[in-house]
């Protein structure tokens, strides 16, 4: 009997901890949303706005070279893989459909989110943890600075704006990569290629793709900052909280992407 009680107690404790964490995350999310809502109205706007610009610079602009290469290669690879099948069936016209479905609907938001998680999410979690451990967060609080307004909201807004722009940029460059293959393999002119793309591209595809980008920007920052600020005192916690933030953000991005796609394109 005693042998059974131990594991059950352990399981119960884990369930309780999971619920506590989920509740804390929910409260953190509510506070973050409230801070974003009052971002433009509070007196600390200009100071927080500068943090937002820095976040856009770090998350968006500095990632552009890598994003360019990756999107070009992905567009290139998608067409390289699908073109032999299309040529075999004489269905060149489907090239636009394939690119829109694979790149605009799915790969654009997902791949961009992965880049932001690995580059900025880890950095944000580590920065928040370091701020917490070294007493910088408390120094801000002691100065009467609203930590959610000054630390979290600018990062949330900066990441959302960055991801929105990055997804558009990714789609455009990936489609250019696809065109490079199409033009060399099929000697397809740009006019025809763009016609195929525009025929296949529905407004709903754009809305959903860009909505995903905004949602991902929000949750990546949320998970990163939440886990970063959970650090207590020791520097060894920094990589631990960064890892937790990255894993949870990735999990949420994949699950929410699948759910959104299923809801709008399948059900």
């Amino acid at each position: 009997m005693t042998a059974l009680i131990g594991p059950i107690q352990g399981l119960g404790a884990q369930v309780c901890e999971a619920f506590t964490n989920a509740w804390s995350l929910l409260m953190f999310s509510v506070d973050s949303v409230a801070a974003v809502a009052r971002f433009f109205s509070r007196q600390g706007f200009w100071a927080a706005f500068r943090v937002s610009l820095q976040q856009v610079h770090f998350t968006g602009l500095e990632a552009l070279p890598f994003l360019s290469l990756l999107s070009l290669l992905i567009g290139f690879t998608v067409i390289v893989q699908s073109l032999p099948q299309l040529q075999g069936m004489g269905a060149h016209g489907l090239i636009g459909k394939i690119l829109v479905i694979s790149i605009v609907r799915e790969l654009g938001p997902i791949v961009t989110a992965m880049i932001v998680i690995t580059r900025s999410g880890t950095a944000m979690a580590a920065e928040m943890a370091t701020n917490r451990i070294s007493g910088q967060v408390e120094a801000l609080e002691a100065m009467g600075i609203d930590v959610f307004h000054y630390l979290i909201a600018p990062r949330v807004i900066g990441s959302m704006v960055s991801l929105f722009c990055m997804v558009i940029y990714f789609d455009v460059i990936a489609l250019v990569g696809g065109f490079l293959v199409a033009s060399t393999q099929l000697t397809m002119p740009w006019i025809l290629y763009s016609d195929y793309i525009l025929e296949s591209l529905q407004p709903l595809d754009l809305y959903i793709s860009l909505s995903k980008s905004i949602l991902f920007g929000f949750v990546i920052t949320l998970f990163s900052c939440y886990h970063g600020l959970r650090a207590k005192r020791a520097p060894y916690e920094v990589p631990m909280v960064a890892r937790s933030g990255v894993i949870q953000a990735m999990f949420f991005v994949f699950v929410s992407s699948a759910v959104i796609s299923a809801v709008f394109y399948w059900i």
Binding site: G44, I145, Y150
Partner: peptide
């Protein structure tokens, strides 16, 4: 300058 920028920046 941080406290001034935040509280009195406007």
């Amino acid at each position: 300058a941080l406290p001034l920028n935040y509280h009195y920046g406007n």
